[in-house]
Structure formats: C-alpha cells, structure tokens
Design a protein around this nucleic acid. Structure first.
Length: 429
RNA sequence: GGAGAAGUCGCCUAGCCUGGUCGAGGGCGCGCGACUGGAAAUCGCGUAAACCCCAAAAGGGUUUCGAGGGUUCGAAUCCCUCCUUCUCCGCCA
C-alpha cells in the first residue's frame, strides 16, 4: 500500500508506475481516490468541528449540573441533540469513505524500484546471473518420484488414501534427507547471524487479513472449523504478523530472522497441483528469512538475502540462477523481487525453488510497523526470502546428485545430518 | 474444560463502587536547566501516537485508558462480546 500523500501530491508518479506494470485499467482509480479523499477530508473536518462543539457543550452541562442549574443544563442538552443527526450521518459517511479509499489503495500497486525491468508478464522476466554449470549427465535422469521410489523413499498411494492428492509420505533416507536439508538450512542461517524462530503454525483471521489479500486468502488458506484460526501458508505470515502495530526502537534494527515451519496451501486454481509428485503440494516445509530494517538499508538486505539462498544451493552442488521479476509480473505490494531457480538436468531447464522480495514500506504501512526515530516515527521496510523449501527442493537435489546406478551423493555439508553417510544406496530388492 | 482476579501514558501505580473539574494524579526512568571546581544529591521545567484544518511555521481540533460494540448531552469509570495475563481445580504430550 502506497502513501496516500504521494498520490495527492504526485499523482503522475503513481500513474506512470501503473503504466509500467501494464495495469492501465487501474488508471481511473487514481482520480477516483483523489476525489474520495477530498470528500473524506471535508466531511472529517466538519465532523471534527461538530465533535469539538459537542465536547465543549458537554463540559458546560457538567458545570451547570454541579451548580444545580437544571434549566441551563437542559437547554444545553437540547442544543447538543440538535446537531446529533448531522454528526451521525457525517460519521458514517466518514467511515464509508475511509473504507472505500482503503479498498482502492490496496489495489494501487507499490512504486517499483527503478532497476526493475519493464515487461508484461512472466515471459519477460530477466535472468540476472547463473551460478554453477548446468550439467546434463550422459545417462537418463528419471522423474523425481521414480528416483525416490527406487530408493524406497516415498509412498504416494497411501497418502492419497489418507489425505488425498497433493500429500505424500516420505520415508527412510529420503525423509531423513528432507529433514537434513532443513536442519542444515537452519544452521546455515544461524551462522550468518540470523535469529532462529519457530513460529505459530496457525494464525487468527485478523492477522490473515493483514498479511494477504482476500483473493489470496480464499485460494491459499485452510481454515480450522469452529475456531478463528487458519493454517499458515508460510512462516512469513506469523513472522510478519508479530510486528503488526509494533513500534520498534532504532536500536532494535535490523531484525534478521530465520523461521522454520510447515506450510499449508489449498492451491485453488494453481497449475500443477494435479500432477503426480512433490512439485506442487498442499503441505511442505520451509526455512524462511525475514528482515525488518530502516528504509535506507532495504536494498542492501535484498541482495544479502537472495545471495544466501544461492550460497546454500551451491554448497549442495545444485546449479542455480536468479531471475528478476519484471514490472508486469511483480506483485502489487512489492518494490522488487527475484526468484532463485534450480537447474533440472531432466527437464534441461531451471525451476523456481525460492523467491526474494523487498516490500519497501508498503507492508509496514498496511500493518503499522513503525520505527521510533529521533525526529518522529517512520515506517520500516520489510523483506522476505526462501532459504529452502523441501520437498520441492529435493527434486533439484536428487536430479543433480544422482549417480547412474540410482544412488545419491550426499554433499559434505549435509553428511553430519545424515549420520555421516556420503551416499544413499539403492536398497537390494 | 471449570472457578476466580486483572489488563491505565517507556516501567510501576492512583482513579472505576458514587459517569462531568481525568488525556488522566503520583513514583521511577529519560531529556533540558539551575545549583557545583566537577559530580552525586537537591530543585525547576518537559516527557505518547495517529489523523484533520492552516501555503509553511505558530496555532487550533478530533481520536485513542487491552480490542470491538452499546447506554448517555458526556464513559478509564456503567452494560455486552472478544482477546490476553495471573491463581486454583481438572485433563494431557
């Protein structure tokens, strides 16, 4: 959500930004909100005047009552009653307008960073940099489910029976590998100075409303029946939620946090949920990074964050690249974002394994995340990034560390989490 | 799950029964100043946020006493709902 003052003072900046994002249908909203804002402030000013009159007279009534001057008191009461109608209608008008304005402000996109490439949709996202050689071995790489099954590491049939499509049982060394990747990611981030968190896995509707749009909520969040609770779709939800209406001291910044959680997503209408495997699923686990910082530091943190993910994947011998989101593909709340994509030697292409976002002050404005400064308060900047999110990440891991006989190499950093193993062997039948 | 008690301005606390002089007293902390050679102590002053009006500054105003609603001319104070914390009982990894 952008600052309405920017829209009042420099509507052209906002219009230009909307055009860059190819959302021309939203252009009329700029004038619409300026008009509503004017109307809102007019009725607010009038209502505040009436309230101040009422307060003044009410004080007088108290004074008359104390004197026992009933007649004067009754006369004053009548005076207040006379303006009650106007005040009431103005108040409700004020509320209605404020609500309307907020609704529009929520869909007016955040001002994107000048460095963001202009493009219409995801086909125009821009590759920034490759890390590691995208290597294709001279033997055939099986589909990830087949790799896992050969290692006796997955049971999709049982999962369909107990929970339906989009769920899975991982077992044996594959399950252990899954946990190992997360444990390693946890320690990897702690070593880089982040504070480890285990957050609540369910949050109240009030928090859900704050951290996502209604459409997202409908398509993503599982609701607990009979409770005001939702299963989180990512730990960002609970981690950012904890800062709602916070006033942070400058000395507490930056907050550099890394959180682990299972993630639950309905994936309504999402492409690929019906596909067999663990690429798009209703339940996965994720080690996440969250940064709350001063405005001048957010660009720096953005680069630190995505590089962490690249370093993590490179330490596991997985080639990756960064793909920058172009203006048209960038979510409305974001200033800048990029995906970290892992190499798939089977498909001979990269696929998304993580996403790094700088939200500027937009999220903070919406949620009231403020910093107490020397000369008054100001809004914080917020960022988030995926460190690793298995089991999707296992697809890249298995394909890139597969030997021709079907066994899996365990890169050095992971071995201590795998009981010292350097290879996962194919079990004898 | 049951029974009680409580949530006030950075922290602690007064006010709630008996609604008006309470945006709110006191203490601590913090800031500035006086005193001092310097400091401690002491004394004095100050000490929230969001928003609106005003070209700006000065100034004025509205809202906020856990959250939301209600009663009233007027609510920290009365009523309802919810959230949170503490104590006791029960249950359970």
């Amino acid at each position: 959500m952008i600052d309405i003052k920017l829209l009042r003072n420099d509507p052209d900046i906002v219009r230009e930004n909307i055009k860059k994002k190819f959302q021309d249908d939203k252009l009329p909203l700029v004038d619409k909100v300026i008009e509503l804002d004017k109307e809102y402030r007019d009725s607010k000013t009038r209502a505040e005047y009436l309230r101040s009159q009422r307060n003044k007279i009410s004080k007088q009534i108290g004074f008359f009552m104390a004197q026992g001057n009933k007649e004067e008191a009754e006369a004053a009461k009548a005076e207040v009653k006379a303006m009650q109608d106007e005040l009431e209608s103005l108040s409700s008008k004020e509320d209605t307008l404020a609500e309307e304005i907020r609704k529009i402000m929520l869909v007016i996109p955040n001002i994107i960073d000048p460095s963001v490439p202009v493009g219409k949709d995801d086909s125009e996202n821009v590759e920034i940099e490759k890390f590691g050689e995208p290597f294709v071995p001279d033997f055939e790489i099986p589909y990830h489910v087949d790799i896992m099954e050969k290692l006796n590491g997955i049971d999709l049939d049982s999962a369909r029976k107990t929970s339906g499509n989009g769920f899975y049982y991982l077992k044996g060394d594959i399950a252990r590998l899954h946990s190992a990747c997360l444990s390693y990611a946890r320690d990897f981030m702690i070593d880089r100075g982040f504070t480890y968190y285990i957050p609540p896995y369910m949050i109240r509707s009030g928090v859900v409303d704050g951290v996502m749009s209604f459409a997202e909520m409908e398509n993503m969040m599982y609701k607990i029946e009979g409770e005001d609770l939702y299963l989180i779709g990512t730990s960002e939800h609970s981690m950012i939620g904890k800062f709602i209406d916070a006033q942070l001291d400058e000395s507490e910044l930056p907050q550099t946090l890394t959180s682990y959680s299972p993630c639950f997503r309905k994936e309504v209408g999402a492409h690929g949920i019906e596909e067999r495997g663990v690429y798009r699923i209703h339940q996965f686990e994720k080690q996440e990074m969250i940064v709350v910082c001063k405005p001048e530091d957010s660009k720096k943190w953005y680069d630190i964050l995505w590089k962490n993910t690249v370093d993590y994947f490179r330490s596991l011998d997985i080639p990756v690249r960064t793909l920058e989101c172009c203006s048209g593909d960038l979510a409305d709340l974001k200033v800048k974002s990029c995906d970290v994509e892992a190499w798939s030697p089977r498909q001979k292409k990269y696929f998304e394994v993580g996403s790094c976002s700088n939200l500027g002050d937009a999220q903070a404005r919406r949620l009231g995340i403020r910093i107490k400064g020397e000369n008054g308060n100001y809004l914080a900047h917020t960022l988030n990034n995926t460190c690793v999110a298995p089991p999707r990440m296992l697809i890249a891991f298995l394909e890139n560390n597969l030997n021709e006989d079907g066994s899996i190499r365990i890169p050095e950093p992971l071995r201590m989490y795998m009981g010292g193993k350097s290879v996962i062997e194919v079990p004898a039948k």
